[in-house]
Amino acid sequence: MSERSIAVVGPTGFTGGLVVDALLRRGMAVRLVGRSLDRLTSVAARHRNANPELCPVLEWERERIAEVLVGCAAVVSCAGPFVEAGRPVVEGAIAARVPYCDSAGEQPFIRWVYEQQNDAAQSAGVAVVPAFGFDYVPGDLGAAIAVDGLGPLRRVDVVYAVQAVGTSVGTRRSALGMLRAPCLQRVDGRLVVERLGARRRQVDAGFATVIAGSFPGGESLMLPRHLQVDTVITHVGLPGMLSPAGRWASVLPRVLSLPGLAPTLDRLVGRGAAGPGARARAGRVACHVEVEAEDGRRRAVLVEGTDPYGFTAAALAELATRMARGNVDATGSCAPAQVVDARGFLSATGYTVREVTPAG
């Protein structure tokens, strides 16, 4: 492997481990970056033939992270929760002039990357692409496909649906932070705060008819970067009581914000399974994207597949490989559709897309 290494920050977690596997399958050299040498060594032991580099960072700050990223061809960050651990990695990558992508799902972090890091990334000549996983690549790329030929948009509705629920420790910790933060949607050209589940939407997700509730997704921040659109609403439909469309949605954020409760919840989510089981990963998932043009025309597409974590790893590994090989020309803080071809990339990562009847 003569190419320069791709750094994986946070390779000891569930998603980070999958990204390492996906990069090595592509024949890429990998540099493992994290806080614990023992845990990095454990990951490296599973890949002795690949001989990955180990780079422990004891002081989690921009300067130290930049030092270990120097010389890398790209960096993938899976070190969450991103609102706590993500900023020094972005700043370090920009300082080291290394293209960057991550698996973030937290809306406040994505907004920070777009609004506060764009100029620095452009000056450094690198692309910085947050939230390049199952949340929220299908929604962003699905909208880019659906809009073809329609012109300026009045509205985009995105619905994520899963057949079975399974999460990693990192996802659960990030989700707690997301539920405590304001839920932003784009309405009439402005970001407005709405309660979780304030809106409901019913769609045919292919495997079932799903009722989803509004959720603080990334599309309200991403789509205006490459589409002319007034309103963007993201919804999530989950089976059982976990869905934002359920009765608990209006009260859960307030409960999670009760004084003294956060440390207890953080401990509890860390005690569960490290990642989803085989049944959850094999379950079907879908992203229904419907766009409405200013002249009233509507179009919808359904992005379908399985295993959101596997998709996230494949998407990050594919983008990082393209970055490392100089196949991404964009600079600055970018949405997914600004760095890849929508249809081709979904196909390359194992997901399908088809036009469907709008839900209305």
Rank of each mutant, 00 (worst) to 15 (best):
Thr357Val: 10
Gly170Arg: 05
Ala262Gly: 04
Leu238Ile: 05
Tyr160Ser: 09
Asn51Ser: 13
Leu37Met: 05
Gly296Leu: 08
Ala164Gln: 08
Ala315Met: 04
Val236Ile: 12
Gly217Met: 08
Leu54Thr: 00
Leu196Val: 14
Val339Trp: 06
Tyr309Pro: 01
Ile211Ala: 09
Ala7His: 00
His288Gln: 06
Met222Thr: 11
Arg298Thr: 15
Ala66Tyr: 12
Asp329Ser: 14
Pro108Arg: 11
Ala95Ser: 14
Ala161Arg: 04
Arg154Thr: 11
Phe134Ser: 09
Ser214Trp: 07
Ser42Ala: 14
Asp38Ser: 15
Arg279Trp: 03
Val165Met: 13
Cys287Met: 11
Ala300Leu: 00
Gln117Val: 09
Ala29Phe: 01
Leu24Ser: 04
Thr41Cys: 00
Leu32Gln: 02
Val232Ala: 11
Ala330Val: 11
Gln228Arg: 14
Ala79Cys: 12
Asp135His: 08
Val113Gly: 07
Ala330Ser: 13
Gln202Ser: 15
Val192Ile: 11
Val356His: 03
Leu268His: 09
Ala29Ile: 00
Asp157Val: 02
Phe207Ser: 13
Leu256Cys: 08
Leu238Lys: 14
Thr171Tyr: 07
Gly13Cys: 07
Asp38Tyr: 10
Ser333Leu: 08
Ser333Ala: 15
Tyr160Pro: 08
Asp148Leu: 06
Gly270Thr: 01
Val165Leu: 15
Glu194Ala: 10
Arg279Asp: 15
Leu261Arg: 02
Cys183Glu: 13
Leu268Met: 15
Trp60Val: 00
Leu153Gln: 10
Ala143Phe: 12
Ala96Asn: 08
Leu176Tyr: 08
Leu265Pro: 06
Pro152Asn: 13
Arg299Val: 00
Leu32Gly: 03
Val353Leu: 05
Arg225His: 12
Leu319Gln: 06
Arg247Leu: 13
Thr231Arg: 09
Leu40Val: 02
Gly71Thr: 01
Thr171Asn: 10
